[in-house]
Structures are given as C-alpha cells and as structure tokens.
Design a protein around this nucleic acid. Structure first.
Lengths: 113, 113
DNA sequence: AGATATACATTGACACGCGAAGTATAATAC
DNA sequence: GTATTATACTTCGCGTGTCAATGTATATCT
C-alpha cells in the first residue's frame, strides 16, 4: 500500500528540511535516503522534489551551491538556513496538531455527546 | 494555530464518512459537529464540504435525499453506502500508514546509520 | 557500443481547497 | 414592520502542489 499524494501534500518540504537538519546534501541522495528509510514504501517523485527545493530556496529556508565534483554528474547541494530550522520546528508542531485533530475527526464514535 | 489546507487535503472525505458512520446527516450539521468536536480549532469550509459531498456521491460512497422539512430551509441528507463503509475503513488504514511514514521521515535524527 | 546508474530541470495536466458571491427560508431584534 | 442573524445549499474561478513525461549530461559496467 503506497502513500497517497494528497496525504504527503503539505509535508514534502518538512521532510526535506528534516533531512537537511542532518547536514548539507543533494537531491538524488535525499531521495534515496527517503526510499531507504521507509523500506521502499515511499519516495518523493523527482519533479516534486526539485520543485520543493525551488520553493524552499525562494522562501529562504535553504541555500544551494554547486558541488566541486571533478567526476560524475554535477550536484547541487543544499544547506538549511536559520530560517529553515525555525520553519522546520514550526511545521513539525503544525503537523502534530493536525495529526491529533484529524485522528479525532476520523473516529467512528458510537456516541459523542 | 489553525490547520493548513494542505494537511487536511486527502482527509476531508474520510472525515465526512466518519460522521456519516454514525447515521444520516446533512451538511450544515456535520460542519457544526466538526467545529464543536475540535473546540473551534477546525472547520471544513462550505465550498470544500459540498464539493466533497459531490465527489463522494459520484463515487458511490454516499447517497443523498431531500429532507421533508415543512419549515426552515431545505436540507439535503446523506447516508453512507456499504461501499462508503468499506472505503472509510480503507482510508483510515491508509491514513495510519501515512502517519507512521511521515512521522518517521520528519524525525531530525542525529544519526540514522 | 549499448545499457544502466547518477543527477538535475522543465512543461503541462490535474485535483483539491477555498474565497467570494448568490439563492432562499425562518427566527429574533429593535 | 423591517432589518439583522441563523439556517442551508450552490457554483465559479483562482491558487497551489503533485507528478507523468521528456530532456540533458556524465560515468560505469558489460
């Protein structure tokens, strides 16, 4: 059972930020890490990943620079900014609030009064 | 702190189904119930609610009929179908899986290897 | 030489949430 | 008696995020 797009929506950026909290990295590796961490149950699609990077950079949450690889394909590295860290904590808090509310609303209670 | 649109996305239909698991009801009351259940922290916007009803009916998860009120505004009642019940359980399962995966991915682990 | 893995980018379609505006009836206030 | 508020549903159009598809480019493996 794969995870529906509409359910990760609103979390992709936070997922990326979480990864960058551990240190600078780049798209391909971040995606592989997500795949690995979820036992291949979930992956961000490339287009989704790279457009999320754009948004995060535009909003000042991350900063990018080209790696100095002398071999292999070029890599665009990303590092999280102070604003990004702040945003990460806030988003996590929001997620936890939302999670609780949704759990509450999905209950099939027999009587709620 | 209100709940972001992108975070409830994918759950609105399940929320409605959860309400209808308790018995037939209509839009206005369902919305008030949600508001009440979450201590006014969350409500489905009218447009969202009613378009979700449309989708659910189109997909055969719910069935609607006009109430026979002799006074007040007309009410369109909804009842959940067997398919709707099935769908409700499935969506809840999916939500729980997604929740776990997302929680896992949002962890700011110091070392994951 | 051809296939596969690495690595990033862009376009266009699609779906959902929602602000805004509208319709209609009944109850309450002044 | 009319103005406001609550009840109740509907539709239009915009914004945003996901993703399939396609393309570019390099290195390694067979």
């Amino acid at each position: 059972m794969s995870i529906a797009s509409d359910l990760i929506r609103g979390n992709t950026e936070t997922i990326i930020l979480a990864r960058l909290m551990q240190g600078d990295s780049y798209g391909y590796v971040i995606n592989k890490a997500i795949l690995h961490k979820t036992d291949h149950q979930f992956e961000l699609k490339e287009a989704t990943l790279y457009t999320a990077f754009r948004r995060l950079e535009e909003s000042g949450c991350i900063h990018s620079y080209w790696g100095d690889e002398t071999t292999g394909a070029r890599r665009r590295y990303y590092s999280i900014t102070p604003l990004g860290r702040e945003s990460y904590y806030l988003r996590k808090k929001e997620w936890n609030v939302a999670k609780t509310l949704i759990d509450q609303l999905l209950e099939e209670e027999i009587n709620d009064e």
